[in-house]
Write a protein that binds this DNA or RNA. Structure first.
Length: 304
DNA sequence: GACAGTCAAGTAGGA
DNA sequence: TCCTACTTGACTGTC
């Protein structure tokens, strides 16, 4: 585990601010948009500083940072122009502290949808995510992760459609897009086939793989996924979680299973990955995981 | 201030 | 056929 960067998604429960602020579509106004984005960016700045202070160098920025960014209602709102200075400042902070950023658009991004309207809104949403990374001045090692979308009654065809549409995406989107295995639509093997077809890197999700796989052990699965990341993609990203025993299959645990995580990290050995902790209690688990990494790195050499 | 219903968007699976 | 979950609950009207 040479320099594992640890992270958590979107929200820091220890801070008294949220970068996920939004409003109802019916409440849309130029003023509301401006005040919400300004508050979200200010909170994001605090969040990143908190992360740096606690050596959590991987962070998933909320897709809500700019509410309704890909919705027609906001088509005339130039958020990139109005907040250019703030966004550039945030990006400079990310680069100065060697932070890693990811984004995870919602379930409404369905690139292979049979509906033309859904496909178009999906492309618009992905373009917003790429625009955000562009506005931050971040390179193609900062990623946008999505799932296959749906099977639409024909799993083979759905992957073909995904591949075809992937090829038509704007370069700024395509260069940042990665696909994550899930337990419903696309197993790791499916994602690897997509990689073979269009070159998209595969983000390995430990929990989803434990639920749905084709016999690959977790480490074998991880190695296969890691091999899909090229130099321009940076260190492979991994989503780490365990099953919440009290909830439905696939539900993320509320707290970190420290022993499970320790075992996971030990088995990484020399593998270079950045780990996103998809644990419900957010930064609290990330701090625990940080301790585990430091312990395993030994005295005098904190583990990245 | 607390609470409950609702919120831009799609899809599959379960009740 | 309706409800739920998802990546992250958050917003808003009512009491």
């Amino acid at each position: 585990m040479p320099g594992v960067k640890l992270g958590y998604p979107a929200i820091n429960q220890a801070l008294a601010c949220r970068s996920t602020g939004t409003f109802r579509l019916a409440s849309f106004s130029d003023e509301r948009m401006t005040e919400t984005i300004a508050a979200n960016l200010a909170c994001l700045r605090r969040l990143l500083a908190w992360n740096v202070e606690h050596r959590l160098l991987f962070f998933r920025i909320t897709s809500n940072l700019v509410p309704f960014a890909s919705h027609p209602v906001a088509a005339g709102y130039d958020w990139r122009g109005r907040f250019a200075a703030e966004l550039a400042g945030l990006g400079a902070y990310v680069r100065a502290h060697d932070l890693r950023i990811s984004l995870h658009p919602g379930q409404f991004v369905v690139l292979n949808s049979p509906s033309e309207a859904t496909r178009a809104s999906s492309v618009a949403e992905l373009t917003y995510h790429a625009d955000l990374l562009d506005a931050l001045g971040l390179d193609t090692t900062h990623k946008v992760q999505i799932h296959l979308g749906g099977r639409h009654g024909d799993a083979e065809r759905s992957m073909e459609v995904f591949a075809q549409r992937h090829a038509t995406l704007p370069p700024s989107v395509r260069s940042r897009l990665v696909i994550e295995n899930d337990e419903r639509d696309a197993s790791l093997a499916d994602c690897l086939r997509l990689h073979a077809a269009v070159g998209i890197p595969v983000l390995f999700d430990t929990l989803h793989h434990s639920i749905r796989n084709d016999g690959e052990t977790p480490l074998r699965g991880l190695d296969l996924a890691m091999a899909t990341w090229g130099p321009a993609d940076g260190t492979p990203m991994v989503d780490y979680s365990t099953q919440d025993p009290a909830r439905r299959t696939g539900a993320h645990a509320v707290t970190l299973d420290v022993e499970h995580f320790r075992s996971f990290v030990r088995r990484l050995r020399r593998r270079d990955v950045d780990v996103m902790l998809e644990i419900k209690n957010k930064e609290a688990s990330a701090l625990q995981a940080r301790v585990v990494l430091d312990e395993l790195a030994g005295p005098g050499e904190p583990g990245g």
